[in-house]
Computed example of a mutant assay.
Amino acid sequence: MDTTGTRKSMVRWRKRSFVAVPEEPTVMAGFVDTLTVSPAALSHLLHGLKIAATYSPELAKTLGVVWPHIMESVLTRPLPTEQVDRFGQQERLMEELAPNPTPSGADLHVDSTLARARRTWLTLGPLRDLIDSWTTSAGTERFAIDNLVGFLKAQPIHEQIEPSMRWVRQLCVSSNGAVDSAGFLLIEWLQDLRSEVTASARPHYRAVVDGLALAQHPSAPAPQRLDE
């Protein structure tokens, strides 16, 4: 089976389906509002759109128009009861709300794909308040953390520091001070930004580093040594 061809066809379909959104943003907004009753369907849609936009600057621009509405629509809807959400679909949807560039699983050149996508990716400004709210309700699963860090890496360095370091702390440091799940991207991101951390952001950086050490994360010594 030609899985690469199938994936490319899916990307083309998603791009064609939503290319008119800048002219008709209410079309996409209404579609998302309809799907909020089905977290599973909406989470799959958002994940697919992020993959398609990673390869299309035009679609990335389109998502920049509609993503604030997507986040607000999901964050303000009533949460499902535990019985209704027994398969964790709401959690998956919350994870997908962070608009990170998402390469296809068939991509053999992920680093160069991400580098290109980040140059034209969604900007932080229109999403600032929504991400702040999201980090307090998305849970601490690794996909939420990876998706947030993936989005932040597409932003200028000064925005990765402030207010983003506080958001990472809000998302991944639990009430007991430990980082229960660091994902795959957090450690390297902390190391890369260590020399850029400002005085006002340092308490948040320190809390995350200490949280990794408290949780005895295998890579915790690396960022901790960098901060000594």
Rank of each mutant, 00 (worst) to 15 (best):
F18C: 01
V19Q: 06
E23Y: 03
G30E: 15
F31W: 09
D33C: 08
D33Y: 01
D33K: 14
T34F: 15
L35V: 13
T36A: 06
V37P: 00
P39R: 12
A41P: 01
A41T: 09
A41F: 04
A41K: 09
H44S: 14
L45W: 05
L46C: 14
H47V: 00
G48F: 00
G48K: 02
L49V: 00
L49G: 00
K50C: 14
A53R: 04
T54R: 11
S56M: 01
P57L: 00
L59P: 02
T62N: 00
V66N: 02
V66S: 07
H69S: 13
H69F: 11
M71K: 02
E72Y: 09
L75S: 04
T76F: 08
R77G: 04
L79I: 03
L79M: 13
L79K: 15
P80Q: 09
P80T: 14
P80Y: 06
P80N: 12
T81L: 13
V84P: 09
Q89I: 00
Q90P: 00
E91G: 05
R92C: 06
L93F: 00
L93P: 07
E95Y: 00
L97R: 05
A98L: 14
N100S: 15
P101Q: 06
T102V: 07
G105C: 02
A106G: 04
L108T: 15
H109Q: 12
D111A: 10
A115M: 08
R116H: 06
A117Y: 00
R119N: 04
W121I: 07
W121P: 12
W121S: 03
L122D: 07
T123H: 08
T123Y: 01
L124F: 15
G125N: 14
P126N: 07
D129I: 11
D129V: 13
